[in-house]
Design a protein around this nucleic acid. Sequence first.
RNA 1: CGGGGCGUGGCGCAGUCCGGUAGCGCACUGCACUGGGGGUGCAGAGGUCACAGGUUCAAAUCCUGUCGCCCCGACCA
Length: 564
Amino acid sequence: MRSSQLFGKTLRQAPADAENISHKLLTRAGFIQQIASGIFSLQPLGNRSITKIRNIIREEMDRAGGQEISMPVVQPRSLWEESGRADVMLPPLTTFEDRRERDMVIAPTHEETTTVMARAGVTSYRDLPFTIYQIQTKFRDETRPRGGLIRAREFEMKDAYSFDANEEGMDKSFQAMVAAYKRIFKRCGLEAIMVEADSGGIGGKDSNEFVLLTESGEDTILVSTESDYAANVEKAEFIKKEFPKGELGEVEEFATPGIKTIDELAKAEGVSKSKTAKAVFYTVDGEVVVVTIRGDYDVNETKLRNLLDGSEPRLSTPEEVEAAGLVSGSASAVGMEGMRSVVDDSITMGSNYLAGANKEGFHLRNVNLERDFKADILGDIAEAKKGYLSPDGKGKLIAKRGIEVGHVFKLGNVYSSKMGADYTDEDGGQNEILMGCYGIGVGRLLAAAVESNHDDFGMVLPQSIAPYEVYLAGLNLNDPDIAGKAEQLYQQLLDAGYDVLYDDREAPPGVKFKDADLLGIPARIVISSRSLDGGGVEVKARTEKNGEIVAESDTLDAVKKLLG
RNA sequence: CGGGGCGUGGCGCAGUCCGGUAGCGCACUGCACUGGGGGUGCAGAGGUCACAGGUUCAAAUCCUGUCGCCCCGACCA
């Protein structure tokens, strides 16, 4: 490609709206153009990079045994009613009516359609296992898109789905995808780590995210200092501090005028926060639920949601708290009737807690689970934080920021049971197909690659995903001799199979160098009167400060040395 | 959805408080010079000042409403 003919211009200044480094650089370099909030066009350079990423994904999916398919973006809403997700996925799920007034959805993901495909195509255990995938546009009406391609509403995703007859098979399919993912990220120049994750709206039991650790990430990841334990904060577990349980004391009420918080209570009593039982109120499906956790920990709402069977909890408003007859600042689960109680297991690792007396200005001493209040649900709802003990007992947790570039799920029978995807086994019995699903955000992968591969001058893209491999800058092109040699070099490089961007513009050298750097093309060749005087052409890697002059006839070899 | 900010040529901004013929830098066009890190000069072109309504002799500027975009939070495969 000749720069003089390339559509798209580089910008000296990024649009004021761009905040992330990847958003800024991709916009400045003319890769992407924003059309609306979270909605982007790809310009030629960006489209080339995306095409390369797509091809890497495709190669690795095929290598792992995946078969490419294509499913519709527009689907009947009834399909989503079958799976039970029509109402729970709102608002990201966008719906509209077609001209016959049928409710349709714009697909944010494709578990439903893929299950339909399997239920029609699978009748026997002999049809299993298989994995299908597609690379296709999704639309999720996120409440807040951000960071350019990092969180877009319309975006391209590679989504794969595996189908197996049993657990072992599902695990095997899952592992094959994990291996493929590792190769994909590596080939795209990303050091993504696999972490334990919550499965969110997709469902299923086990899920893992692939995360690029970077300060600009929007997710918090907790990793162990001494083991390879790593988990998204939504999912992360830890070893809770255990305290000796003494004799249960008598419950005793005492005055605490003006004390509204756990901090104040612990301070006033001169004890650690771990001696208090904190009560927090959540509204779930219109009902107020009392949540009790030891005062030294905080509630993780994702864990809470999972214990509540996936219903979305939100902090109750002061009005709701009051309407439920609770005294904010002095509330506890003690004596609560007709209200669901969720208790974190940290409460069982100690005794004789300080807790609210449900009476303005009073608290209780020696409050204990079972004897003084009940737990309808007892489990882990505590949020892991840095400094806590890793759940495998090895080391402490530290917190890092990261971008989720891929997510893999063991779905099991979540969809097959609801949507009736069965097969006949060896004994003639009917069984549910076990599924896995596996996603990679293609545009986000590009953004993540830029986040982790750039310097002060622009992107520093790996050869595998750079829009072009070689940037050929011709200087002094008004000299016919140099122009002719540059042209010859351009043709040679093309003949050798390289993707070449030939900067044949009438522009000062500085402009060409700045553009070469901004675009992040891995190899740069300069041909100019100076280079020719020096004995040939300059060949330089994007990652190096200085290049080397090689004889014109050695150019291809030098490029080969650099790029392979 | 809560909080904050911003809408003025393709991009970055000034002008708005205090109403009076819309300006600067980059980019763009032509010519000349220059020629290894966004070069110089001369001459140009391009704007419904987000939209609607109102106040006024006069509105980018004041008032009301609407829309859009960004950031923080909530939320989110």
